[in-house]
Amino acid sequence: MMRVLRTIPYTLIRMSRDYITLLLLLVVPIILITIFYFVLGDMKNQYGDLAFYDTAQLMTLVFQLFGGSIVIAYIQDDLFSARRQRILVAPMSLPLYALSISLCGMFFSIFLGFLLVLFTGVGLNVEWGNVFWVMYIIALLAVLSSLVSLILIFSVKNIKLAERLSDVYGIGCVVLAGLFFPIPDYPVITFINEYLNPLLLAANAISYAQSNLFSDAYIYMFRLGIGIVITFIIVYVLGRRKI
């Protein structure tokens, strides 16, 4: 266990030096949110708040959906490539090491989310409400996305396919939420958005908390939590077999 813990600083160093990930999951959302800041300006939504706040919050959450790609990249690098042999021969538990990489990936994704909340809150005056609640929800979303990515790694033979499917998961959530184009009001889609779409679950948890409707906020948080529990069980079962 201690040996695995000693690898964590190095895993985090590696992630912090991954300029591509920082570009994709930090710089790009900052640019996009800033452009929307200028585009939407003083436009108000149906509740009388600035429309930009909703957009900024949604965009911050959208990029958490793709945080699972960090986990995929490092699991692939260490456990499904040439380095696998060296890790297998090392006197440390492989499942624990895989877990440590996954946790580092989740933590890094949460940290990037925090930086986006900081940027939008301080730099662009977005009202997030209770920051601790927001970070908690972002953490849940990051964990769920990472677990989905792990399920894909462990259930699909080709790691490239797992990466593409992870993108499909992220883009799919965004499309179903109606952010690219209006989605028809079919019962199935409404059900998915209400109970399964992590993006909307997180967005609703945050927005209800902002409106002090905590019982509704907790319901959405609870649904995210259920999703995490179910995906964790699947990961555990699949992961033991694969690793």
């Binding site: 201690m2 040996r3 000693r6 690898t7 190095y10 160093i13 590696r14 030096r17 991954d18 490539s81 040439a82 380095r83 042999q85 060296r86 021969v89 090392a90 006197p91 440390m92």
Partner: peptide, 28 residues
């Protein structure tokens, strides 16, 4: 046991010292 793999299996984004430190830590 030490294993020198046929493929180069180090961390490209870490320095030489960091790579060695990583494996030193793993081996206790």
């Amino acid at each position: 046991i030490g294993l020198v793999t046929q493929e180069i299996s180090i961390f490209p984004e870490l320095t030489a010292k960091e790579n060695a430190n990583f494996f030193a830590g793993v081996y206790g």
